[in-house]
């Protein structure tokens, strides 16, 4: 039984290559060509990676949510494989996001964590989806695993905007003006290049990881052994 048609086996690798290329170029421009930002100096350069990572992390989680919904309606295993891949990649991106945030915060504010609403929401999201990955590890039956993690993904994703607004409110009472300033309009090129770079990398990784998940599902969902029935 095939879980997913492998119609374009080379495609993820092509996309991966493109992603590395874009990210390399974008990062080069961001690190060496673009001038340092007026107020924050060299540290601000991390935004060329931080912002694209943020967009893509949210994209990965949204894709996971979509896969979860489709799976609950259609019970097609390939959506479970894709959801698993999207959650894992999303977790990696969210983790990177938190690291980047910390790297930015230390020289800027003197502390490793600045309770910025977006970053804090990312941390909560990271924990929520790590929990879902743990859930998947502890459930052996493929059908239950798929349904439960789809339910948990939907619940966690719906929470994201709520977490964001509550943390923002909570933060505003302490008047910590800590959101990193966005990049000035003239230097959107490296930002956009990196955004596409990370997007391609993410897509490639999700495709490859989904393939692994599909193969594992195929192993688990073996058909009944051949025998005679009356």
């Amino acid at each position: 039984m095939r879980v997913d048609n492998n119609r374009f086996p080379r495609l993820p690798w092509i996309i991966l290559g493109l992603g590395i290329l874009f990210l390399a170029i974008g990062s080069y421009i961001g690190l060496f060509v673009a001038p340092p930002e007026a107020l924050m100096g060299q540290v601000q350069r991390i935004m060329y990676v931080h912002v694209p990572t943020a967009w893509n992390a949210l994209l990965a989680m949204t894709f996971a949510f979509v896969c979860a919904v489709i799976f609950l309606f259609k019970s097609d295993w390939k959506w479970d494989a894709r959801m698993e891949a999207a959650i894992e990649v999303g977790v990696v991106l969210a983790f990177l996001l938190c690291c980047q945030g910390a790297i930015w915060a230390k020289p800027t504010w003197g502390v490793w964590w600045d309770w910025d609403p977006r970053l804090t929401t990312t941390a909560v999201l990271l924990f929520a989806f790590l929990g879902i990955l743990a859930l998947r590890k502890f459930v052996d039956d493929p059908a239950r695993r798929a349904i439960w993690s789809a339910v948990a993904t939907i619940i966690a994703y719906v929470d994201v905007p709520i977490v964001y607004y509550s943390v923002r409110w909570w933060n505003s009472l302490h008047q910590l003006q800590s959101s990193p300033s966005t990049v000035s309009r003239q230097f959107w090129l490296p930002l956009r290049m990196n955004a596409f770079g990370i997007l391609f990398l993410m897509t490639a990784f999700i495709m490859l990881r989904a393939r692994v998940a599909s193969m594992r599902l195929e192993q688990e969902l073996v058909p009944p052994p051949v025998g005679e029935s009356v």
Binding site: D140, E220, L221, V222, P224, G227, S229
Partner: peptide, 14 residues
């Protein structure tokens, strides 16, 4: 047919 994990508890019952 009904499986539990890898084992088919029911394979083909009519």
């Amino acid at each position: 047919a009904r499986r539990y994990g890898r084992r088919w508890a029911l394979a083909d019952v009519s």
